[in-house]
Amino acid sequence: MTILRRWTLQLVRRDGRRVRSLSLSRARLLLSVAGTIIGLAGLGFLGGFLTASRAESRRVLELEAEVATLEGERERTNRLAGRLNELEEDFGLLQDAVTSGRPAESPPVNVVLGGGVEIRSRTSAEAATPAWPLTQRGFITRHFGSRPADSREGHTGLDIAVSTGSYVRAIQAGRVEAAGEDPIYGKFLRIAHADGLTSLYGHNAWLFAAAGDAVERLEVIALTGNTGRSSAPHLHLELARNGVLLDPLSLVADHSGRDSTGAPAERQPE
């Protein structure tokens, strides 16, 4: 014999005028309690899930901000790397220009490129006399005033054949009047000296001085090359006083064509 236990739940209004009775069986009560527990657990899980979602959303936003910052840093790094590559290429060109074509027995020159001065004891007479413009042995291929058979104009200066990358020196102290590139002279420098004298150095591969720079006697100002209207590497030296062209061999100290070691430079027939 099964005895069913039932509970009666009475709900009474505060004023006592109305009473409601609810009859509950044991099974129904248990189901209600279980449902309440499950509902509360579901609400707790949902609340935790919503809290975790909000935290995850904030973390995603923080990560996106970090990614944007890193992208900006990467772009700046790429720009810096590109600039570094350009500087390395420029340095490589300068290094190649300095080292290419120079014989192993080339005499040492005590200079600092781009503004240095060769330091050596010399008399005041030496300092006032225009010096030979090269440290390398060269060949005089064209003299001042020489004229090819197909030309009516005489040569305006002195052409000295020498390997590319040889040191070009200022023949005398002065200030650079012009520096740049010309269709005829190629990369050139023109220096104004005392007493209205000017010197021009043409067909260079590299220039170490710019317009307005002060230079000293025997300071390295360029490297020889084959730029402009030129058929082979050489230096074109052109001198003028007050606008009148002069024969460089009549003024330079080593007018015999001696190089820095004292050996005479060889000459080729015109």
Results as ranks from 00 to 15, higher is better:
residue 113 L to N: 05
residue 216 E to Q: 03
residue 180 G to H: 12
residue 5 R to G: 13
residue 120 R to M: 06
residue 80 L to H: 13
residue 216 E to K: 01
residue 38 I to P: 01
residue 185 Y to K: 06
residue 159 D to T: 00
residue 6 R to S: 15
residue 259 D to P: 15
residue 163 S to Y: 02
residue 124 S to T: 11
residue 140 I to L: 08
residue 32 S to M: 10
residue 203 H to M: 04
residue 51 T to E: 12
residue 181 E to H: 13
residue 154 G to A: 00
residue 111 V to W: 07
residue 131 A to D: 06
residue 123 T to A: 05
residue 255 H to G: 14
residue 180 G to K: 07
residue 206 W to I: 01
residue 59 R to G: 01
residue 152 R to M: 02
residue 8 T to Y: 13
residue 4 L to D: 10
residue 194 A to G: 13
residue 5 R to F: 15
residue 227 T to M: 02
residue 117 V to Q: 09
residue 200 L to W: 10
residue 208 F to P: 00
residue 248 P to E: 01
residue 143 H to L: 09
residue 43 L to V: 14
residue 92 G to T: 11
residue 87 L to F: 08
residue 121 S to H: 15
residue 41 A to N: 06
residue 69 T to L: 11
residue 184 I to H: 08
residue 136 Q to W: 12
residue 255 H to E: 07
residue 212 G to K: 03
residue 45 F to I: 12
residue 207 L to R: 04
residue 52 A to S: 12
residue 251 L to Q: 02
residue 19 V to H: 05
residue 227 T to C: 02
residue 165 G to E: 03
residue 126 E to L: 08
residue 202 G to W: 15
residue 46 L to F: 14
residue 88 E to M: 12
residue 226 N to Y: 03
residue 185 Y to N: 06
residue 181 E to I: 07
residue 209 A to R: 07
residue 232 A to D: 12
residue 101 G to Q: 04
residue 163 S to N: 09
residue 78 N to W: 11
residue 232 A to S: 15
residue 58 R to L: 10
residue 234 H to A: 09
residue 10 Q to R: 11
residue 34 A to C: 05
residue 85 N to V: 10
residue 49 F to W: 15
residue 54 R to M: 09
residue 200 L to G: 07
residue 162 V to Y: 02
residue 247 D to K: 02
residue 142 R to Q: 08
residue 53 S to I: 14
residue 223 L to C: 01
residue 202 G to P: 05
residue 79 R to N: 08
residue 179 A to I: 07
residue 63 L to P: 03
residue 250 S to Q: 10
residue 40 L to P: 01
residue 158 L to W: 00
residue 134 L to D: 11
residue 75 E to L: 10
residue 101 G to M: 04
residue 190 R to H: 06
residue 71 E to R: 07
residue 210 A to V: 08
residue 55 A to P: 04
residue 168 V to K: 00
residue 63 L to G: 03
residue 4 L to P: 13
residue 188 F to R: 06
residue 114 G to L: 02
residue 71 E to M: 04
residue 61 L to S: 10
residue 240 A to M: 04
residue 245 L to C: 15
residue 209 A to M: 15
residue 27 A to K: 15
residue 71 E to V: 06
residue 81 A to S: 11
residue 122 R to P: 04
residue 148 P to T: 01
residue 91 F to E: 11
residue 91 F to D: 15
residue 113 L to Y: 14
residue 106 S to D: 15
residue 267 R to C: 10
residue 167 Y to F: 15
residue 69 T to D: 12
